[in-house]
Each structure stands twice: as structure tokens, then as C-alpha cells.
Amino acid sequence: MEEVIDLSKLDKDFKYQVVREPGGEGLLSCFACGTCAASCPVREIDDRFNPRRLIRMAILGMKDRVLQDEFIYLCSGCYLCQERCPQDVGITELMTALRNIAVREGYLHPSFKAQLEFVYEFGRLYELTEFENKKRKKNGLPELNAVIDEVKTLLKEAGLSKFVEVKE
């Protein structure tokens, strides 16, 4: 990242948008100590993901970069940074907040979209086919409902049906 950051082109209000989002409340407490980056098992193997840098970018107002790059999706959710953060930034929850904002701004990661479609259609992350139920029975396990419809009702209620390519 050698480019010059032009502050006038950044969204100065982005940090407040994040703070208002559930999970994002602690953003402005970060004093950039780097404990999160040092604790992160993902950064250890892929330094494109760096929680400290991401937090700095969010505070500076680099909204498009924060929401459109792959960074926020590379958090594996292990909570080690959150446990160790001396400022209680709540970094893992902050990643959730950023992902939620990205969705509302129109970007849903294809991996999450695929998961949503399954949960929407079946009420579960995997389809429980007749084959699966037969296998379960053979293993002495009770059969399960293939579809739990109420989940679809709730996801519709939450306004998520617009992201789903439905086979009604």
C-alpha cells in the first residue's frame, strides 16, 4: 500500500456509521497498539488480513475499501484479538458489524449468499435429503424434518428474501 491517501475523498462519517452498528461500538477506542494483529492466526499466514490496518482504514473513512475488499471476510472469528485487546474494541464483533453494513450497502459475499439460500430454503445449512434420512435411520438415529418453513417466514420478515434467488 504505497499510494497516497487523499483524505478529502474519504467518508468522514463512516466511523460514526460503524459505531452506531451493533458490534461496532468500540471502534473509536482503538489506539493502534497492534495486539490484535499479533494475535491473529489468519494474519500469520496471510498478511493481507490485518485487523489493526482494517480498524485504521475504518476510522480514516476508507469506506469503499473496507467494505469491498476481501479483508473483512477473512476473519475466522476465533476471538483471540477480542480477548487480548486492551481497549475493548470488540474486534470480532466489529467484523460482524462491517459485514452487516456491507450487506445493507448492497454487497453480500457469494459464500454468505450461498449459506443464506440454504437456510432460507431448508431452515438448515445443508439439505437433509431422503437419502440422508435413510442413512440416519440405518445408523439408529431419528429422522429429521427436511424443511423447517418458519425460518423462511422469519428471514422474509427480516427483509432478507431480496438476496435469495428463490425457487418458490
Binding site: 451493533p22 459485514r99 452487516n100 437456510v119 438448515r124 429429521l144 424434518n145 428471514l155 427480516a158
Partner: peptide
């Protein structure tokens, strides 16, 4: 065994926190 149990809501948290809560609360 309760056949009405669904996904816990975990995969939905990254998309919409409130929608996840709905599924969990159910």
C-alpha cells in the same frame, strides 16, 4: 429430540445480526 429445531442462526450473523437473533430466539 425436537424436530422443529432449525439452524441455530450462526451463518446469518455475518449477513444480518437481527435476523440471526430471530432464528436463535425461535
Amino acid at each position: 429430540d425436537i424436530k422443529e429445531f432449525s439452524c441455530c442462526g450462526f451463518p446469518i450473523k455475518s449477513i444480518d445480526k437481527e435476523a440471526q437473533l430471530l432464528i436463535s430466539a425461535r
